[in-house]
Design a protein around this nucleic acid. Sequence first.
DNA 1: GTGGCATACCTTGTCACGCAAGATATACGG
DNA 2: CCGTATATCTTGCGTGACAAGGTATGCCAC
Lengths: 124, 124
Amino acid sequence: MTPSADSTDDRRSIERELKRGSLELIVLHLLAGGEAYGYEIVSKLTAETNGALEVTDGTLYPVLYRLERAQLVTVRWETPERGVPRKYYQLTDAGRTELARLTHEWTTFANAMTTLLRTEREGR
Amino acid sequence: MTPSADSTDDRRSIERELKRGSLELIVLHLLAGGEAYGYEIVSKLTAETNGALEVTDGTLYPVLYRLERAQLVTVRWETPERGVPRKYYQLTDAGRTELARLTHEWTTFANAMTTLLRTEREGR
DNA sequence: GTGGCATACCTTGTCACGCAAGATATACGG
DNA sequence: CCGTATATCTTGCGTGACAAGGTATGCCAC
């Protein structure tokens, strides 16, 4: 039984759900343009997609850990002249391979969805 | 059954994740073509997308419950001349509204992703 | 100095949801 | 009857995005 959530039925955004599984792809893709550090990725994402794919840092860091553990990225600390130390991430070869794979999967899925949604359904 | 996994799949497929949040959209869209029952939706999906968006019935029924509880669909039992009773689902007006909303959200998201992925990242 | 602010990284807890696996029930053919 | 097909429903698990909170450092004004 789930007595909860019957009245609090505010319709959530599916954007959050849609992002599921595509975050790794997004991050890998951004890193393909050169190394970057966490905060940089967050702001890049917000900027390049006009907020459509915005994520918080609390979301991003676990993603980066997964990527690191899977050896899709490597890590380098750098302490700039001014400011706090930053943790830079670089794509590995395996990361590039995975990026290609995920891109392909995304494309396949998106095509299937688009085709389906384009189908006229005027019945009843 | 899972006909997948011909590759070394310690790396899970993101297809499953990508589907997150889009299942309701898919089902609502299919129902826009007229009422249908659970098993019918499962087979329709598999057929119309060549398996790209395949779901199991164990996945679908909870979705249908959510839709029903949210009053996006209504339900009608029908016992055919031959065969077991079927539970037919029809879209409500609210369901149609929600369908439009989800479609819009999907399109926005997909466009953002596509645009992002199309960006060349040959740096470094 | 010290208090405040910005930068940057990290952790914890919660909740939703897709799915595998199994249960149930009905009809029908041999 | 028993096996198979149709059809609906339930349970348990794992995953992952997110909010909220925490830590640490450097910079600047007063």
